[in-house]
Amino acid sequence: MEKLLFLLLPVPFAVGLLSPGAAVAPIPGDPVFAFTDPQIAESSGLVAGDGVVVTVNDSGDSNRIFTVDTSTGDTVGITRWQGEARDHEALAPAGEGEVWVGDIGDNAASRDHVSVARVPYGRGDKTVTAPTYELVYPDGPHDAETLLSDPATGRLYVVAKEFIGRLYAAPAKLDPDRPNRLEPVGEVLGIATDGAFFPDGKHVVLRNYGQAVVYTWPGLDRVARFDLPAQRQGEGIAVAADGEVLLSSEGEGAEVLSVALPLPEATPSEGASEGAAEPAPATDDDPAAQLVWWPWAAAAGAAAVVALLAWVGIARRRS
């Protein structure tokens, strides 16, 4: 009985955390290419460039990023830089021909700081000296897999990968000589594995393993939610200059998919800060308006079973 209880205890939490949420069919995904390089086995971050994407493997790899031709899936460039990697988990645009690489993973929540590096990408192999900056949370360590870069200001943001996601802002100007303190901004999608700004700078999309949510920026009003197409372990998301949304997955030879995430109209709210916006009006056809009940019903049922078995076990021991 005790063994069965032990096995069932995580069930309600896993159901609540990992279920996609919206009771609608996943949006379709069209394959663009598959990674042909066996060195890309755990694509965790994704940035879209001109005819290429940039990706990075997560924990266990060295300080390197891959530039991949979107017409073939072939690696056309690898950039390496100084230092040792801890747990690369995210990329974000950093200007023409450069990306921010987020060494921000912390599964054990034990790191006293995380870091970001500004690294050039492109065709051809190169080794560079990349400016690197330490980041510290104001409330203790967090695991994170999402790094965002505001296209209007260049400011960096980190999303903690937790049941209730928390968005943190880096200082507007990073100091290379001392830790840069992150500041809390707001609550967002839970268990986020990646995110990106849209080209308009007025919307941002976050994803987890099965769902994507679009928010207004900087208001962080949720305007749409979508179930994503099934992937082996979908983690990456990027938005190209033309608005195309790309999804990547871990696994050797993984496909990169193109999906359509239409942006609902959003209107300014009364008294809101400049640039903030309200969610689009809810309609029966809007996935964001669907009542998300089944994951929590399943979790409640699993929790009830666990409680019942626990009660039976206690009763037997007392008898």
Rank of each mutant, 00 (worst) to 15 (best):
T79W: 02
V68A: 04
R80P: 10
V68S: 14
E89Y: 02
D69P: 10
G97M: 13
Q82H: 10
T75R: 12
I78K: 09
T75I: 07
N63P: 06
I78Y: 05
T72K: 09
S59I: 14
G97E: 09
D87G: 12
D87Y: 07
E96W: 11
W100S: 07
S71N: 15
L91H: 07
A92R: 05
D103Y: 08
I78R: 14
Q82D: 14
V99M: 08
V68C: 09
A94I: 08
E89M: 02
A92N: 08
V99F: 03
D69F: 12
E84V: 08
D87C: 15
G102Y: 04
S59W: 13
V76W: 03
S59P: 11
V68G: 03
I78F: 11
I78M: 03
G102V: 09
H88C: 00
I65R: 00
E98N: 15
V99D: 05
I65Q: 00
V68I: 12
E84R: 15
T75K: 01
R80W: 01
P93Y: 02
T67Q: 05
R86T: 14
I104G: 06
P93S: 10
L91M: 01
S71A: 15
R64E: 06
Q82L: 08
H88L: 07
V101H: 08
P93C: 11
E89Q: 10
E84P: 03
I65K: 00
R64P: 00
Q82C: 03
D103W: 12
I65M: 01
A85G: 13
G73F: 04
V99W: 03
E96D: 15
A92M: 06
W81E: 00
T75S: 12
G77F: 14
D69T: 13
W100Y: 04
V68H: 02
S62T: 14
S62H: 08
D87F: 09
